[in-house]
Simulated scan of single mutants.
Amino acid sequence: MVPLIDPFQRAITYLRVSVTDRCDFRCVYCMSENMTFLPKKELLTLEELDRMCSTFVHLGVRKLRITGGEPLVRKGIMTFFESMSRHLDSGDLDELTLTTNGSQLERFAQQLYDTGVRRINVSLDTLDEKKFADITRWGRLEQVLRGVDAALAVGLRVKINAVALKDFNEEELTTMTKWCADRGMDLTWIEVMPMGDIGNEDRLGQYWSLKDVRKAYENSYAVTDLAERTGGPARYVRLEETGQKIGFITPLSHNFCESCNRVRVTCTGEIYMCLGQEDMADLREPLRASPKDDTPLEDAIRAAILLKPKGHDFDYSRQKLDGQMPRHMSHTGG
């Protein structure tokens, strides 16, 4: 099978799939408070998601990350994980994982582990209960913390993803780092991305450059750069005092596109070749038009990969929202 290679000779081996645009939180940098969600009939069924992901695996994808919205609020989602585990058993897939807000982990941690998931990312921006309620609008911090503990207890490796937000979690850098270190968890900071209409929230006011985050670490820790590259957006350092790995995802202050090995498929079957571009292709139509023959779907995937751009256009440097995307992150999947 000829592998998926984009026009810039990058092999596409990593697929992120949003299984729902729905979420039980309304984080202020991700969604408006009163979201209008997609009609359920537009979403791919779990069986269609299985066929879609399996086709990508057949074409050389080795890592599959399930996202949302919040993936664990999708009804019946564990049957999908159970089905996809066959690709782990066959050796065709190296990793099946997910990104979650943690709200449902207490319920599903053991089932996830049983299906072959070994590593998860939990999005968590603050350990302050009031601030957590403010930023998620609907969320309950204690529920998430119990979920993290449940995941660790069953043997899942947990990485915390925190969006760096100016005048919000700046003073929590040391607190969150220590909390993660005490539990053997790595921590990745992410610059807020200009995606979707979020009402009255100020994107520029939210932006806390990770250059400043790194300086804050250097004031308190011995920081060692790591050469580790996963094909993903993060650059890593090690804090010598704790031994933990700290990641920096910097779409705004440092473009990471040269090593991009991934594409994203939405819950409606749209493939986005770049998170920061609007170019997309419809995979739902060939998927549904030919239910017993995957050739049209494979052809559509290959055609989409040939349109993958070199990089995105996010830019805050001129104090305006260059490259802002009209779609919400919850639609594409983070």
Score class of each variant (00 low, 15 high):
3 P>E: 00
6 D>R: 05
7 P>T: 04
7 P>C: 06
7 P>Q: 02
8 F>N: 08
11 A>I: 13
15 L>Y: 09
15 L>D: 02
18 S>T: 07
20 T>Q: 05
22 R>I: 07
22 R>H: 11
24 D>H: 12
27 C>E: 08
34 N>D: 09
36 T>G: 15
37 F>H: 13
40 K>A: 15
41 K>Y: 08
44 L>V: 01
44 L>A: 05
47 E>K: 15
48 E>K: 03
50 D>H: 13
52 M>L: 14
52 M>G: 04
52 M>E: 03
53 C>F: 09
55 T>Q: 14
59 L>T: 01
60 G>N: 05
63 K>V: 10
64 L>R: 09
68 G>L: 08
69 G>C: 11
71 P>N: 10
73 V>G: 01
79 T>Q: 00
79 T>S: 00
80 F>M: 03
84 M>V: 07
85 S>R: 05
87 H>I: 08
87 H>L: 08
93 L>R: 06
96 L>W: 01
107 R>C: 06
107 R>S: 05
108 F>C: 10
109 A>N: 04
109 A>S: 14
110 Q>D: 07
113 Y>G: 09
116 G>D: 01
117 V>S: 06
117 V>N: 06
118 R>Y: 04
118 R>A: 04
122 V>E: 02
122 V>H: 02
127 L>E: 04
128 D>R: 04
134 D>P: 13
137 R>M: 12
141 L>R: 00
148 V>C: 02
151 A>Y: 00
153 A>T: 06
154 V>N: 01
157 R>K: 09
162 A>H: 03
162 A>C: 15
163 V>E: 02
164 A>E: 03
165 L>P: 00
166 K>R: 15
168 F>G: 00
169 N>V: 07
172 E>T: 05
173 L>M: 04
176 M>N: 08
182 D>S: 04
184 G>T: 07
190 I>S: 06
193 M>E: 11
196 G>F: 14
197 D>F: 15
198 I>Y: 07
199 G>L: 09
201 E>V: 15
204 L>F: 12
204 L>D: 02
205 G>V: 15
206 Q>C: 13
208 W>L: 14
210 L>G: 06
210 L>R: 11
212 D>E: 13
213 V>M: 13
214 R>S: 03
214 R>P: 00
216 A>N: 07
217 Y>M: 11
218 E>T: 01
218 E>Y: 03
225 D>E: 14
227 A>G: 11
230 T>H: 12
231 G>A: 03
241 E>L: 12
245 K>N: 02
245 K>A: 03
246 I>H: 05
247 G>W: 04
247 G>S: 07
248 F>V: 08
257 C>K: 06
260 C>R: 08
260 C>Q: 03
261 N>E: 09
262 R>P: 08
263 V>D: 05
268 T>W: 08
270 E>R: 13
273 M>A: 11
275 L>I: 14
275 L>R: 12
278 E>A: 13
285 E>P: 03
290 S>R: 01
291 P>A: 10
291 P>H: 10
293 D>A: 08
294 D>I: 11
294 D>G: 00
301 I>P: 04
302 R>H: 00
303 A>F: 06
306 L>H: 09
307 L>A: 14
314 F>D: 10
315 D>Y: 12
317 S>H: 14
319 Q>D: 09
325 M>V: 13
327 R>H: 12
329 M>K: 02
331 H>C: 11
